Amino acid sequence: MKIVLKQDVKAIGKKDGVYEVSDGYARNFLFPRNLAVPADATAINEVKTKAAAQQHHAEEELAAAKALAAKLSGQTVVLKARAGQGGRLFGSVTSKDIAAALSQAVGENVDKRKIVLESEIKNFGSYPVEVKVYPKVTAKLTVRVEE
């Protein structure tokens, strides 16, 4: 008997998958526990619709990420910092500081966890920074620290 799983079942497979199981297993175990439904035209159509909607949302997210990466690429972010003797900063410039400056410059919220620093920024100068906007979508920009 063909069934469509409503949730993950360890011995069979993942949610929204169409699987072939024995009639007794389906009638006596899966159906009474609401783990599956018979794979009729309605259930299969619903699975296809969910898959299409999920793919559409993923494409929209990817397009939005590429647009944000295009805005961020090539940007130069200027941060002001105080320094002590020898030009060393008090503390360091963190990804939180960079994210705040980027959000203000671009007008969109940039998450500090997506900013990749090669090393700590503890001196004045320019530093290359990579922002991982989405899986396989990155933007490279420059952070300039001034007094």
Rank of each mutant, 00 (worst) to 15 (best):
A70W: 01
V47W: 07
T94N: 11
I3S: 07
S22D: 11
K71Y: 06
E46V: 02
T142Y: 01
L117H: 08
N34Y: 04
Q104F: 06
K96M: 15
K14T: 06
A100K: 15
V110L: 09
I12S: 07
D111K: 14
T138L: 04
Y25L: 13
F90Y: 15
V18F: 07
R27C: 03
V116N: 12
G91W: 09
G24E: 12
D97H: 15
L68D: 09
Y127K: 06
E146V: 14
G74Y: 03
V47H: 08
D8P: 00
S103W: 01
Q75I: 01
K112L: 08
V78N: 11
T42Q: 13
A39T: 08
I3L: 15
F29H: 15
A63C: 02
L35K: 09
T42W: 01
A52C: 03
S95G: 15
S95T: 15
V9R: 06
G24A: 15
E108G: 03
N123A: 05
V21F: 14
P32I: 04
D97L: 10
T142Q: 12
T94M: 06
V47F: 05
A63K: 14
V93N: 12
F29G: 02
S103F: 05
E120R: 13
K10C: 01
V143C: 09
K66T: 01
K66D: 04
A43G: 05
K2W: 03
I44F: 02
M1W: 02
G13V: 08
P128D: 11
K80P: 01
Q85Y: 00
N45Q: 14
K96V: 14
G125N: 05
V116L: 10
Q54G: 11
K10G: 12
L141F: 11
V37N: 09
K114F: 03
K132M: 14
V133A: 05
G13W: 08
A99D: 03
N34K: 15
G17Q: 15
Y19M: 12
A139G: 07
G86L: 09
N34D: 12
V129M: 03
L30H: 12
